[in-house]
Nucleic acid binder design. Structure first.
Length: 624
RNA sequence: CAGGGUGUAGCUCAGCUUGGUAGAGCGUCUGGUUUGGGUCCAGAAGGCCGCAGGUUCAAAUCCUGUCACCCUGACCA
């Protein structure tokens, strides 16, 4: 029989009148018994868990998979999420944002004007009601909030406005993976701001900067190691954009940093400093020689076969254009864009778009072949042979020397490609040929912000993203207010997201060891774990109760491991779950009038601390 | 979406090639033992072998279909 008397928590407290008041400036911590909550730890992780956060959160009893990309948050996880949300709320409120709560369900009609259901495509989770009407489970709430503000704000006097919510979001990911890192259902904080101007007090830029600061505070307070980077705004649209990345080798995103200037950017966005470029006057290295290269799918294979290193090959990627981008000075009538980079480099679509002045997409295979491109074997010469083609050459690929390239006919490549000899006078036509930056930045590239400095790469997990949206949604949905001069003006918007559940997972990716999770105190499910060596021993129970009581009075959350287990499993579980401080109460230390104190992040056995000092030691460690 | 793989006990997996109606370890429960880093012993509970068809006297096993899940890539506020 389990004996639970003698400890100041648990069922014996039920029915007692709460002494907490409506207004309070002190927080009383929580005190829970391990045996009375649900922490299903396991020795082995589910077979599908591979990344550390997935394995550890599963094994430590934080999450349980319900279906692909859908998870239960068990009590420990929910406590962490609540703490993260608490910090988010605190900083958002400080930054002048006000919380509200919008429905998960977004009627399809809301997307009629923004056409975003098309942009999202299958990523949008759809539901059908009994009448056959379809709605989306919100992946984000720009439409909903714009619709709502439209109905309640009509004067410049009501702006600026900053609103946020913490909600469950849905995305029907093609491939959910890595546990909580890429889910179909996840918790997110999304904020939206509304303005009549960009600059000055009350303008978008001011709110954007405030959000940037709030985000920095949030991730610092959570105890996370993060980097803010310049980012692409992606399909959500808008101008400026920053991402907040948890620094972590297992991160999915690549970021580049300039160690001198502090510039940091996502690889999608990262600029590259001045690089030398070719003059197109360099002499040929030899006769243009055709090589038969059948059934070789990639640059690496072709290179190996031809005995040419990838950095001496030209990679030619064909894009098709749609409409010109606003403000573009690009020539009219461009149908195709061919981007040429070195074989060991990757074409950056955003840069192709920027340099060409056209919206682009990777060319449709069939259409490109029909137009005369030997897809897989294209050479830059096609700028001459296919009408309406714009050639963009990356600086590194424009240099002289030996080049191998496609030959414009299937199964063949050429050696000794020479820009002037092969492409000819067309190279001098700025309306058809441009040289510049069209590739992804790489480690060692020149920094765009500090001459002489070299970019370094790092990996990160995106947990926050802020955007200057501008009037994209207000224009599309007709959100406008009257200004001082009684003119109707479109409202300028910003939007700001934080992946709350992803932040929890990213934290584990960032902070764990071979034994388990190591939570930063600020978002740990509990601050102190009291481990009872003999839960049935009245003396140990009394000491545990006293310590718990006192800690709780200081706002510390305490979990007491009162399970009738051997020390082995208890210590293993303690390390696995990762509560920052473990206080072990056993005969050994009690004989010396103390208990054993150990910080999770420290290795070794811990130290004996006199009974009278334990609480203070805990507080010092937690606040330190 | 393309390619590959897997569905058997709460978890990890064996059994399938060569059909004969289900196993191990961990976990759970009972009794004993042990008591500062996943004790030891004895016993017990627990499975429509993903689902639906088919072949066969007989299917976890062979065939067909289907669903789910995973990996690589594509995709991705």
């Amino acid at each position: 029989m389990r004996k639970s008397g003698g400890l100041p928590f648990g069922p014996m407290n039920a029915g007692q009148t709460s002494t907490k008041r409506a207004i309070s400036n002190t927080r009383i911590g929580d005190s829970h018994l391990w045996s009375r909550t649900l922490i299903p730890t396991t020795r082995e992780a589910p077979a599908d868990a591979e990344t550390p956060s997935h394995v550890l959160l599963s094994r430590a009893g934080f999450i349980r998979k319900v279906s692909a990309g859908v998870y239960d948050y068990l009590p420990l996880a929910w406590r962490v999420l609540t703490k993260i949300s608490g910090i988010v709320r605190d900083e958002m409120n400080n930054a002048g944002s006000v919380e509200l709560f919008m429905p998960v369900i977004v009627p399809m009609e809301f997307y009629q004007e923004t056409r975003r259901h098309e942009a999202y495509g299958d990523l949008l989770f759809k539901v059908t009601d009994r009448k056959g009407n379809t709605a989306a489970l919100g992946p984000t709430h720009e439409e909903t909030i714009t619709e709502m503000v439209k109905g309640s704000v009509n004067s410049y006097k009501q702006l600026p406005l900053s609103l946020y919510q913490i909600q469950t979001k849905f995305r029907d990911e093609a491939r959910p993976r890595a546990g909580l890192l890429r889910c179909r259902e996840f918790i997110m904080k999304d904020a939206y701001t509304f303005h009549t101007k960009l600059e000055g007090p009350g303008g978008l830029n001011e709110a954007y900067d405030a959000m940037y600061r709030a985000y920095s505070n949030i991730f610092s307070r959570c105890g996370l190691d993060y980097t803010a980077v310049e980012a692409e705004s992606g399909p959500i649209g808008g101008s400026a954009s920053h991402e907040f990345m948890i620094n972590c080798a297992s991160g999915e995103d690549t970021i580049l940093k300039c160690p001198v200037s502090g510039y940091a950017a996502n690889v999608e966005k990262c600029e590259i400093g001045e690089r030398p470029r070719g003059t197109f006057a360099e002499p040929p290295t030899g006769e243009l020689t055709e090589v038969h290269t059948p059934n070789l799918p990639g640059i690496d294979e072709v290179g190996k076969f031809m005995k040419v290193k990838p950095d001496r090959m030209l990679k030619t990627i064909v894009f098709q254009t749609s409409n010109k981008t606003p403000g573009s000075i690009a020539p009219d009538g461009v149908k195709w864009i061919i981007a040429v980079v070195r074989g060991d480099h990757d074409v950056n679509e955003g840069k192709v778009k920027a340099m060409s002045g056209y919206n682009v997409a990777l060319a449709d295979d069939k259409a490109a072949r029909a137009a005369g491109f030997a897809i897989g074997y294209v050479s830059p010469r096609t700028v001459n042979s296919v009408p309406g083609t714009l050639l963009l050459i990356d600086s590194d690929a424009s240099l002289g020397g030996f080049w191998a390239s496609g030959s414009d006919k299937p199964d063949h490549h050429v050696k000794h490609f020479n820009w002037r000899r092969e492409v000819g006078a067309m190279l001098d036509d700025p309306a058809r040929v441009r040289v510049g930056d069209v590739r992804n930045a790489m480690e060692g590239d020149p920094s765009p912000r500090s001459s002489g400095a070299k970019l370094v790469t790092a990996r990160g997990i995106e947990v926050g993203h802020i955007f200057k949206l501008g009037t994209k949604y207000s224009d599309a949905m007709g959100l406008a207010v009257l200004d001082e001069t009684q003119q109707k003006k479109p409202v300028i918007m910003g939007c700001y997201g934080i992946g709350v559940s992803r932040t929890m997972a990213a934290c584990v990716e960032m902070s764990h060891d071979e034994n388990g999770i190591i939570w930063p105190a600020a978002i740990a499910p509990y601050h102190v774990l009291i481990t009872l060596m003999k839960p049935d021993d009245p003396r140990q129970r009394e000491v545990a109760g006293k310590i718990a009581c006192e800690l709780v009075g200081h706002g510390v959350d305490v979990l007491t491991d009162d399970r009738d287990e051997r020390p082995g499993p208890k210590f293993k579980d303690a390390d696995l779950v990762g509560i920052p401080i473990r206080v072990t109460i056993g005969d050994k230390a009690l004989e010396q009038g103390g208990v054993e104190f150990k910080a999770r992040k420290d290795t070794g056995k811990g130290q004996v601390v006199p009974l009278a000092d334990v609480v203070q030691t805990c507080l010092n460690t937690l606040n330190g």
